[in-house]
Design a protein around this nucleic acid. Structure first.
Lengths: 154, 154
DNA sequence: TAATAAATAAAAATCATTTTCATTTGTTGA
DNA sequence: TCAACAAATGAAAATGATTTTTATTTATTA
């Protein structure tokens, strides 16, 4: 093996070890595929790419790994109106939310969260406890806005 | 027929007419069932209640009607982590979001929206267009917080 | 009240996701 | 380095929520 220190493969291997997940070639490949994607992708799409690299690779393996990685907080699950699963590799470890382009699937981090600041006020209103929140901004990215109109408006 | 003016059945009938939907006994029943529920419910649960009122009622009919009513903005679709569909009848016509109790399914309106105010700033950041946003606060309501701890904390 | 457009029942289809189980592969400690 | 063991995987089948299809029924409207 010739994985150099500081190598990307090495870094992903460390990530997996931190999650107590075995370092398998397929796990590393899934992380690499997600790493190369600037958009959110479906399990099936990742499976297609995996088939180019592995002779035998089952779709359940892809599903299992995506779920594990997302549980471990390494990748992000995207909530989509069509109720299909999509995943996105996001390196931003700070609390933030995503802008997703419904046209080209591009994902952009939004380093802000109005809810976090409102949490106390919400808890006072409902006299309960806020456990989590779901914030996702759906729209058209810069590129898709221009393509659609040539003027940035729809 | 003896539906009085100002009756609930009458009001729902008007709502359906505004959406160009025929006023059928089953549609009215679905609205009545949702109206009586203080929590978000699944299509299957509504179907169970419909079976108490109608000898012949298919699950697809329930699905179709819930989708139509939600498209028409009469009811609200709840995005749930388990990816099942749930619906909730919300009379609040102003822009707002929901606090949903993950324990008892209670829904409470939050008459606030941080995103609406941030929309311009988000569009500037991504140099794109915001089409919609998804905000949902998941937590434990007043009652469930007390039940779990007797102290309001978990 | 007839014409017709929409709604429905029932059954079957769809299809993303999950489970099962036998086999293979990483990991760990001697 | 190597056996032992736990975890990961492939393949096939199962699952289960949701949707489609088609023939029939029902509400609307003139």
């Amino acid at each position: 093996m010739h994985i150099l220190k500081g190598d990307m493969g090495d870094s992903f291997a460390l990530t997996l070890k931190e999650l107590s997940l075995k370092v398998t070639p397929k796990r590393l490949a899934i992380l690499n595929i997600l790493d190369e994607e600037p958009v959110y992708v479906s399990p099936e799409e990742i499976w297609e790419k995996m088939k180019e690299r592995f002779a035998r690779i089952g779709l359940p393996t892809v599903y299992r790994n995506l779920e594990e990685l997302s549980m471990g907080g390494v990748i992000t699950k995207v909530i989509h109106p069509n109720r299909q699963l999509y995943y996105y590799f996001c390196r931003n470890r700070r609390h933030h939310h995503h802008f997703i382009c419904v046209s080209c699937r591009k994902v952009e981090d939004l380093d802000m969260c109005g809810i976090k600041g409102m949490e106390k006020s919400i808890e006072k209103t409902v006299r309960g406890k806020v456990l989590s929140h779901l914030v996702q901004i759906n729209g058209l990215c810069n590129r898709c806005t221009e393509i659609k109109t040539g003027k940035g408006t729809i």
